[in-house]
Structure formats: C-alpha cells, structure tokens
C-alpha cells in the first residue's frame, strides 16, 4: 500500500547553523498510529513542522498522500490536522467560534452538526460559548484537538498531546485516538510519555540528533530489543556472587537478598534451567521467583544512549 506520508532525504539546517534534521527517510502507513520518540531537541517538532508547512524544508522532499508539500501545498495541507505542543489558542474567542474558524480556514463549508459531534465527543459541548481564556489547561488541550479535527483531516499530528494533563484526560485521549484510528485517520504521535507510545502506537520511530535511528513495528521492536529479567529472592543473603556462577549474567541486589538474571527472549536457549541447576548444586536456596520484561522506555533509553 502507498504510504500516506513519504519523506525522502529530508535535511533541515536553521539560519543559526543548527542542523535539526539529517537525511531523514521515513514512510508513514495509511491508517496506522506512528509513535515518534526522541529526547528533547532530537528534531521531532521540526520534522512535524516541516510536514505541516510551519517550517521551511531544507533539501529533500515530503509528499502527503501523493501531494508534494511545497508545489502542491494546498492539497497536502488540507489532509492534515495538527495539535501543537504549546497551548496556543485565540484566548478571547469562544470555543464555538474558534472551531468554526478552523474549519473555514481549511476550506470546508460550515457544518454545525459535525462540529457539535466533535465538541460532544471531547466533552466540550457544555463549554461551547465560553471564552478559551476561561478554560483549564486540560480543556484548552481538548479545544486544540477539536480545532485540528474540525476539517475532517485524514492525518492527525499530535505533538506531545498529553503534556501536563491529568490521568483521566490522558486515558480519554488514548480512547479518542484509538477511535480516530478505527475511523481511518492516520495518527503521528510524539510524546515524552513512553508508556503512551507503548499503549497506543502500532509502529515506533526513534529520532535522535536529527537522524531516524530505528523504525519498527512496536511488538517486533520490543521482542527484538527487549530483555527479560528473572529475579530470585534468596533465603539467605549473599555478600557476593559465587565464582562458580560467573558464567551466568547475574547481578546481586544491593542488600544481597536477590539475584537478577537477564536473558534474551529471542534466543532459543534462555539458560534458565542451567542456572537453577547450578544454584541448587551450590546450595543457594530461593524463596520466590518472578520475571519481568523491559518496557519500551528501557528500550528507548538504551537506544538513545547507544547512539550518543
């Protein structure tokens, strides 16, 4: 299937000399939720801003549903909705006026019924006549989402959408994003909350220092790069790991009460039976055992550190 967004050899250097993007090649698939992760200053917002038309592109090309973002900007931009990172909204306007403005700006005829549905879905209908300045931060965030959806975009960019919002609203937004995906909207999400990407994204792209490092299906990424740990709570604390166990990748907890064994889920042999046999052989008894898998956050941190 044709990608809905195709980025080829995109480079961006600001007038200050800062190179924000370095030869980015990326395809976003139609209908997916794509999580773009990266540390602060990695180039996430620059990349989004170029696709949306806010920042001038450098070398390379970007097409949106087959339309070049420069030569065919009108067709490309009409397909995109953007929820920016900052809470930027016309503070003196009412909620109703501002969503109507957004719909018109993107070339759509008035449709009060559609806008009512969006506001109801976002629990904003009761606030439609209130000025934006009178709303809480969470409500303002919802208004920005309503504005981005007002022209029925096929692609929605969510740049840190849940920054500074409470847990309840965050979960509401996750639900809303899943609902939009089901209706066929492609979603590109940047977030600092890695668990958010873990919860929502189908694919993950990791960007660091202006370069795309990894682009992978989330589950594949987690299986490929994820590590599992087996923690054994000991009957009697150890002062150090016995030399006989040196062949096993073991760590002793600070208080000496637990041994942590790290293994690769992709390998055919995990080494656990041998470890347990050796523990028994050397008289190391344990009272409890549990396993855990590394989260996307662990994977992200290790990948970013690896690149640094």
């Amino acid at each position: 299937m044709e990608p809905i967004i195709s980025i080829r050899n995109l480079t961006k250097t600001y007038d200050s000399g800062l190179q924000a993007l370095d030869n980015i090649n990326l395809d976003i698939r139609r209908g997916e939720i794509f999580g773009l992760l990266g540390p602060n200053g990695a180039g996430k917002t620059t990349l989004i801003s170029i696709i949306c038309g806010i920042v001038r592109p450098g070398e390379g090309s970007v097409s949106v549903d087959g339309h070049d973002i420069v030569s065919d900007f009108r067709a490309a931009r009409s397909k995109i909705g953007l929820v920016p990172q900052e809470l930027s909204a016309a503070t003196f306007e009412s909620v109703w006026a501002t969503v109507n403005f957004s719909r018109g700006l993107f070339g759509k005829p008035p449709d009060p019924g559609f806008l009512e549905k969006i506001l109801r879905d976002l629990s904003l209908w009761g606030k439609r006549n209130e000025r934006i300045m009178a709303l809480s931060g969470g409500m303002k965030r919802r208004v920005l989402i309503a504005k981005a959806l007002a022209h029925e975009p096929e692609i929605l960019f969510l740049d840190e959408p849940t920054a500074g919002v409470d847990v309840e609203l965050r979960h509401d937004m996750w639900e809303m994003v899943h609902g939009l995906r089901e209706s066929g909207v492609t979603i590109i999400l940047t977030t600092h909350y890695i668990n958010e990407a873990e919860e929502m994204a189908d694919r993950i792209g990791i960007i660091n220092e202006g370069k795309i490092g990894v682009v992978e299906d989330k589950t594949v990424l987690m299986n490929k790069l994820g590590k599992k740990q087996l923690t054994l709570s000991l009957q009697h604390p150890l002062s150090k790991i016995p030399m006989e166990l040196d062949d096993h990748p073991l760590e002793l907890s600070a208080d000496g009460n637990a041994l942590v064994y790290t293994f690769d889920t992709q390998k055919k042999h995990t080494g656990i039976p041998e470890l347990l046999r050796h523990l028994s052989q050397y008289g190391i008894d344990f009272k409890d055992i549990h396993s855990s898998q590394s989260s996307l956050e662990d994977i992200f941190v290790s990948l970013v550190r690896e690149k640094a």
């Binding site: 949306c52 995109i80 900052e86």
Partner: peptide, 17 residues
C-alpha cells in the same frame, strides 16, 4: 497578535495562499 500568542501555526499550516 497570532504571532505573539502562537496561534499563527494554524494559519501557516492551513491550505491558504
């Protein structure tokens, strides 16, 4: 004012000449 308040992003990202 849109430049000052940051709402200019919407104008720049809209399909308007």
């Amino acid at each position: 004012f849109p430049k000052f308040s940051g709402t200019i992003y919407e104008l720049l990202s809209a399909p308007v000449s």
